[in-house]
């Protein structure tokens, strides 16, 4: 039984330098014989120490590509990454592959959606955790082992001494995700990027993992970038939420502001379309029509315009800019829309 208390160390963070500054990040996929595809364009956001920033959107909105680009994990061939991702004064995007390898796992770590395919199936769990510490902290295997046991215990894996010797297939999905989190935490990184960490898990297991992540962020002042499509997960976990659509940020706000008064018709539509466990039953859902296949190109339109109930003529002719709007106490609200939902709605 864990009662949830969520306030992350907010008072402490406002005065500090951002840990990560992403500026104008763009990723373009080029394939021979096909039009270049702008997976992410002009994405900028800051992450403060101890803050949890959410990147929310549906498949193909560029949320995962953003994280892979920051981590330098996109294949070099056929992909162009521009912009900056300044982590404590160093632009991660300008580092050589070797320098980036040294950073990954030590300063910035990542948790993926599918724990089974992110773990090496033929190496015991313990060895995979100690390996990270050996590589980045120069520990010997002997020194690393008790630390690994400690870590497994910390992420809630029962009987850690025994689990150290087991292989990924011997663990359940939830335990594997815990093991992966233990690996990510092995070198006490200052930034953790979690890409749909609970999507492959059941709700009861998801609740375990989310509680674990929440506690970790709180206890260690680690910053967390949470990438998810699940608005429910965002609502309970993130301080600041960025909503992505078609590779661009369309709305940013503090979670309370965002859920109470969504201004972008896409955010509004998403919230109106999901059935909620705590709302009155029998209300008809208001779906967002169409699918991402109906998008317009951003160059001279709003990509969401064809699916938008609020669309006006300008939405099909000019691209809206991401602009600061009224409201937002701590986090400034940003919005990319010609005809936003009015605040009273």
């Amino acid at each position: 039984m864990t009662a949830t208390t969520t306030r992350t160390s907010r008072d402490a963070r406002t005065s500090r330098e951002p840990l990560l500054q992403v500026r104008d990040l763009s990723v373009t996929f080029r394939r021979s014989g096909e039009e270049p595809f702008h997976a992410v364009s002009g994405v900028s956001f800051d992450v403060q120490p101890g803050q949890t920033v959410g990147l929310v959107g549906e498949s193909g909105c560029g949320k995962s590509v953003t994280s892979l680009a920051i981590m330098g994990l996109l294949p070099k061939r056929g992909n162009t990454v521009t912009g900056e991702a300044v982590f404590e004064g160093t632009d991660l995007l300008k580092l050589s592959p070797k320098q980036m390898r040294d950073r990954r796992g030590r300063d910035v770590a990542m948790i993926f959606q599918d724990p089974l395919s992110s773990l090496n199936p033929v190496v015991p769990i313990g060895r995979q955790v100690t390996e990270v510490m050996e590589r980045h902290q120069g520990l010997s295997r002997k020194e690393a082992e008790p630390k690994a046991r400690e870590l497994l215990d910390k992420v809630g894996i029962p009987d850690p001494s025994r689990r150290l010797k087991e292989y990924p297939h011997q663990l359940s999905g939830g335990m594997r995700q815990r093991a992966l989190i233990a690996m990510a935490l092995a070198c006490a990184p200052r930034l953790l990027i979690a890409d749909e960490p609970t999507t492959a898990l059941d709700v009861t297991i998801q609740a375990q993992i989310l509680t674990l992540l929440k506690d970790l962020v709180q206890d260690s002042d680690t910053a967390l970038i949470m990438i998810t499509h699940d608005l429910g997960v965002v609502a309970g976990l993130c301080d600041e939420v960025n909503v992505l659509y078609g590779g661009r940020i369309v709305e940013r706000a503090d979670r309370h502001d965002l859920f109470a008064r969504p201004r972008h018709p896409y955010t509004h539509g998403l919230l109106a379309s999901i059935p909620r466990l705590d709302s009155a039953r029998g209300e008809r859902l208001n779906p967002v029509p169409g699918s991402v296949a109906d998008n317009l190109p951003w160059d001279h339109a709003c990509a969401f315009a064809p699916r938008c109930s609020n669309a006006v003529e300008a939405c099909r002719t000019t691209q809206p800019e991401l602009e600061r709007i009224e409201g937002g106490v701590e986090t400034p609200r940003l919005l990319r829309c010609h005809n936003p939902i009015s605040e009273e709605a």
């Binding site: 169409g290 010609h338 009015s342």
Partner: peptide, 24 residues
């Protein structure tokens, strides 16, 4: 009236037809 009260702020511009619900 799915979007009643939503277009409140801007009344200079005409609303544009969205795609059908299933998409084009």
């Amino acid at each position: 009236a799915p979007a009643a009260g939503q277009a409140g702020g801007v009344d200079v511009m005409d609303p544009v037809d969205p795609v059908g619900e299933a998409g084009a």
